[in-house]
């Protein structure tokens, strides 16, 4: 009971908790990204850490948020077309929290996060709708037959792994031939009626993302909205361990959610994702 009271106390201040989790994700992400152009990033990181350790309660400026924002923007400048999509989300969230440290208005911060989430999910829906490969189910069909989806569970089904392995071997053999000859291969299906299943799965993905985006736009604090959003995050994690992106979505959910139990669920998802990023079992 005493543990739950402690947890509840922490969960009540959800903006601070979400900011701390975001700072944790930022620290890990920055450390991974610092392998590139490290020589330029070293002074910024050092100064940020120095000020954070010695002066974070003495000066009014959030130096560590400034340092991390600068590093994210630096990477955007040098690798705009190479960074992952969640680099952009992380940058926008970081800038929102940085501004919040000055204006101190939670309604503005929450509006930032809400609209940002809606834009990201709706853009993802739009991109899927205009992709022939996605709408036709061909993309999921390929991914499933290669063993690229639901891979954490594939170990339980050795017969599926055999099929995906055989498909990979056929593809490698095809890749070695001159593509101008026009040769093709027939992929083995990991289970029957995969073409139809892939198309239905594609439609369901679009429908689910669209419903979640509209729910967040319309009722950002509703328990139903957050239940749907959590289902979407868990669904994506089961399909593909996109842990870096999902940690950010969970933190966004934590910012917006009013239900204590769902806040706890968001924290657990974010922590789970962070652990998988650190252990490199998930993608950063």
């Amino acid at each position: 009971m005493i543990y739950w009271i402690g947890i509840k106390e922490k969960l009540n201040n959800h903006i601070e908790l979400a900011s701390q989790l975001l700072l944790l994700v930022l620290g890990i992400y920055i450390s991974i990204m610092s392998e590139k152009y490290g020589i330029w990033k070293t002074p910024v990181l050092f100064l940020g850490l120095f000020y954070w350790f010695f002066f974070r309660h003495k000066i009014k400026h959030p130096i560590i948020w400034m340092a991390f924002s600068a590093l994210l923007l630096f990477d955007l400048y040098l690798m705009y077309l190479r960074v992952a999509n969640h680099h952009f989300v992380l940058t926008f969230m970081t800038l929102s929290v940085l501004c919040y440290r000055y204006h101190k208005r939670s309604d503005i911060l929450l509006k930032n996060i809400q609209i940002l989430l809606v834009i990201v999910i709706l853009a993802s829906v739009l991109q899927k709708l205009i992709s022939n490969q996605f709408i036709s189910g061909n993309f999921y069909y390929y991914m499933l037959n290669r063993g690229f989806l639901f891979d954490p569970f594939l170990g339980f089904f050795p017969e599926i792994s055999e099929v995906t392995k055989s498909n990979t071997e056929s593809l490698i053999a095809l890749q070695a031939t001159d593509p101008n000859i026009g040769e093709s291969i027939v992929l083995k299906d990991v289970f029957p009626n995969l073409g139809v299943i892939s198309q239905v799965f594609a439609m369901l993905t679009i429908a689910m993302e669209f419903i979640v985006a509209i729910a967040i736009l319309w009722k950002p604090k509703s328990t139903w909205t957050h239940l749907l959003f959590i289902m979407l995050i868990i669904g994506i994690l089961c399909t593909r361990l996109e842990t870096g992106f999902m940690a950010l979505l969970a933190i966004s959910g934590l910012f917006l959610c009013n239900n204590i139990k769902l806040r706890l669920l968001y924290v657990i998802i974010a922590m789970f994702c962070v652990v998988l990023v650190v252990t490199k079992l998930g993608y950063h």
Partner: peptide
């Protein structure tokens, strides 16, 4: 001709990753 996976447009997982494109030089 930028691939949809990159550039901050959230077009990841809408098509096969560009890594699987093949450069062929006879």
């Amino acid at each position: 001709s930028l691939n949809k996976w990159k550039g901050g447009g959230y077009g990841m997982y809408t098509g096969i990753h560009y890594y699987y494109n093949q450069i062929y030089i006879p």
